[in-house]
Amino acid sequence: MQASIQPGRDAATQYVLRLGDTCLILGQRIAEWCGHAPVLEEDIALTNMSLDLIGQARALLTHAGQISGLGHDEDQLAFLRDERDYLNPTLVELPRGDFAFTVLRNAMVATFLKLMWQRLSASSDAELAAIAGKALKESRYHQQHACDWVVRLGDGTDESARRLKAALAQLWRYSAELFEDEAIDEQAAASGLGPKWSELQADWRAEMAALLAAVKLPVPADSVYRSTGRRGVHSEHMGFILAEMQYLQRAFPGGVW
């Protein structure tokens, strides 16, 4: 059994880890569709998206390990942290749900990530800017593909419209967490590392409102509920997904293929 590692606690490391974890956990969730998507072609499309996200996570976790100065590599950071040290928003760890839930969440997160990569392309950290430049192309496609599906389902049959509406009702309240600033946001903005996540809110809401208008769904009212994944306080689903991700590295430390 491999003991857990403690990641760097400095603001820059945490800022990069938070984004890396967002990509990592959503990539893992989407990968669950492999072999289970409604049609073969979409199965491959979802798997491609998952691999893009895991690629982004690899680059970000590797970079976070370098920033921290603690010598952690991508595998250690991905597989050997305790649950409380994962900083992804709760939104991405929620179980994959039905196909409507998956494509709506993908549209929400891809829109967010696209805006994030656009801003990070101008980061004072050259490595982070380079990662963002590559990832932006990937997220633009993810957004287009996912948003097209949202429109198809919203515009489709009674059942698909009902499922999309239900997914929106479930997912929306988890979006507020994305835009709440913490100390690491202030420090990242001050150092030029990257934007405060709250800075993306207006653009994100505008793009989501346009998408929902296209399927004649109202933007849900803001909720007082706040999820807390970014602070390491996750939903009951996080432990299960981490168990699946981690057991191999825990059982066979340093195992590679």
Binding site: V39, L40, E41, E42, I44, A45, N48, Y141, Q144, H145, D148, R152
Partner: peptide, 18 residues
């Protein structure tokens, strides 16, 4: 298989240009 031309182009990209 795809529902329309837009989906066909996207899925062609995903299936045949990986």
């Amino acid at each position: 298989h795809a529902a329309d031309s837009k989906m066909a182009i996207q899925l062609a990209r995903d299936v045949y240009t990986r």
